[in-house]
Amino acid sequence: MTHPEIPPDNNRAERSLRLTVTKRKVGGGSRSMAGFAQTARWLSVIQTCRAQGRSVITFLKQALMAAAAPEKVSMPSLVPG
């Protein structure tokens, strides 16, 4: 209530978590903390690309090209700006 720029509901946050919850229910969760962390990173990339209206496949392709040839291609960023 003290910050009118923030909507009173958290519907966007709930929609962002939906993919994670569905994956956990279908896949039975992670068997290790490392597996959990890796899954969380991938889902974060996917949801961030979707929220920004970017293609996940294009982002991953750019990231792989940058990892393979860092002197030629700069690593793409998910930070807007």
Rank of each mutant, 00 (worst) to 15 (best):
Asn11Thr: 15
Asn11Gln: 15
Asn11Glu: 15
Asn11Trp: 13
Asn11Ile: 11
Ala13Leu: 11
Ala13Pro: 07
Ala13Asn: 12
Glu14Thr: 13
Glu14Leu: 13
Arg15Ser: 12
Ser16Lys: 13
Ser16Asn: 15
Leu17Gln: 14
Leu17Pro: 09
Arg18Ile: 10
Arg18Tyr: 10
Arg18Cys: 06
Leu19Asp: 14
Thr20Ala: 09
Thr20Asp: 12
Val21Glu: 11
Val21Ala: 13
Thr22Tyr: 10
Thr22Ile: 12
Arg24Trp: 09
Lys25Cys: 11
Gly29Lys: 07
Ser30Asn: 02
Arg31Asn: 09
Arg31Ile: 05
Ser32Pro: 03
Ser32Gln: 04
Ser32Tyr: 01
Met33Thr: 06
Ala34Cys: 06
Ala34Asn: 01
Ala34Met: 01
Gly35Ala: 10
Gly35Phe: 00
Phe36Tyr: 13
Phe36Arg: 05
Phe36Ala: 15
Ala37Glu: 03
Thr39Ala: 13
Thr39Val: 11
Arg41Ala: 13
Trp42Arg: 13
Trp42Tyr: 08
Trp42Ile: 10
Leu43Phe: 10
Leu43Glu: 11
Ser44Gln: 07
Val45Tyr: 10
Ile46Gln: 05
Ile46Val: 04
Gln47Pro: 07
Gln47Trp: 00
Thr48Met: 01
Thr48Gln: 12
Thr48Ile: 01
Cys49Ala: 08
Arg50Cys: 01
Ala51Leu: 01
Ala51Thr: 03
Arg54Ser: 04
Arg54Asp: 02
Arg54Asn: 09
